[in-house]
Design a protein around this nucleic acid. Structure first.
Lengths: 198, 198
DNA sequence: GTAAATAATTTTACATTGTTAAGTTACTTC
DNA sequence: GAAGTAACTTAACAATGTAAAATTATTTAC
């Protein structure tokens, strides 16, 4: 009997719709405008239905945040298979980060609690910024200049502050239309950082 | 008759109390917890009184944001009188920025719409990031390495992305208790940036 | 010193929010 | 088709920003 499967498929679809709708509203009107009721209206269900899929609004945002971080992480591991040179990997990944932040600003906003997005869970940060080896970026830095784990961890942290920091400042302070102007400045900063590593 | 003056003084005091209370609540419980009613309760007035002092909640936050930016700007001009060397000025100002962000995180949060703070007005950014000469930082960069105005403006922007970006990433992703750990990393990044300018 | 005028403040109200509990409808199984 | 279960909605609560109306306190004019 495919009844259970059909139900499961439907559930999955509704869940995806909820997440997509939240992102859509956020992109159009900002995260302050995202409410359970508005999402419910768009997906044509009553508001309490959302609580069948997410414990609360915070967990919904947490899901979007985690998807954002794991999307970038997947891109990073994909790039690792493409480029042997650690320098190239860093630069290409920075490019991917920029593209992601510009194309999906509403996800980036949730990832870092900026511009009205607010998610309590700090779990994603502990994963992203864990200063352990075996992270592709950490490895790349270690390959470019082998040093003590502590020294590399420091550079690892500087990397995230440079890339994510640049993106945050740009997304927060610049009007959307003029953002493209800053991409070359960003990429040049990244290249200088990579050059300065040796 | 000093009646008008007395009233004016009282008004000023209440206004200050409102701003201070907002910051206090934000520091203790975060900006999501700051509500007109809660502020009113603390200053022992009914909620609508707040609208005699600020058009709305957004304007209240805008005031805190502007005060934050002008405080830093004042510190910068103060430092300019203390240090002749532009390199020294940059490094000392970075130190002031760090101190400010750590000691008054709730103000920093409003300045950049992070961690639940949300203020629509972008006015402060236009002032802070206006790539014009006569800004102490812009001047310092121009003195360290004289170039075209465009080239300096680019570096000027990189400066803000480095300093504010580093602070944002740190404030957002790190638990308050461990923030102190990152100060030397921040300062080293700034020094490398300054060294790299020549 | 009292009445009128004005300023200061509060009470009441409305729409919107997240979220829960109770109720209802639709579907599946026997 | 009846019983049981899953899916869903309605109604409700407390908290929010904010406006209008009502009230109280203070000042001014006589």
């Amino acid at each position: 009997m495919g009844i259970v499967e059909r139900r499961e498929r439907l559930r999955k679809q509704v869940r995806t719709d909820i997440l997509k709708t939240a992102r859509d509203i956020a992109r159009e009107e900002g995260w302050q405008a995202v409410s359970i009721r508005k999402i419910a209206e768009v997906i044509e269900y009553s508001p309490p239905i959302l609580y069948e899929y997410f414990d609360n609004k915070d967990k919904l945002l947490e899901t979007i945040r985690n998807e954002g971080f794991s999307h970038l992480h997947n891109e990073l591991t994909r790039l690792k298979t493409l480029y042997r040179s650690p320098e190239k990997l860093l630069i290409e990944f920075a490019q991917v980060q920029w593209k992601f932040a510009i194309e999906q600003p509403e996800v980036f906003q949730v990832m870092f609690n900026i511009e009205g997005a607010m998610c309590q869970s700090r779990q994603a940060f502990q994963v992203e910024f864990a200063m352990l080896n075996n992270h592709p970026i950490w490895d790349a830095l270690a390959h470019i200049r082998p040093r003590s784990a502590d020294a590399i961890s420091k550079t690892f942290y500087e990397w995230w502050c440079l890339t994510y920091g640049f993106l945050m400042v740009s997304l927060i302070t610049q009007p959307k239309a003029s953002l493209a102007t800053f991409e070359p400045i960003f990429m040049e900063s990244v290249r200088r950082f990579v050059r300065g590593l040796v």
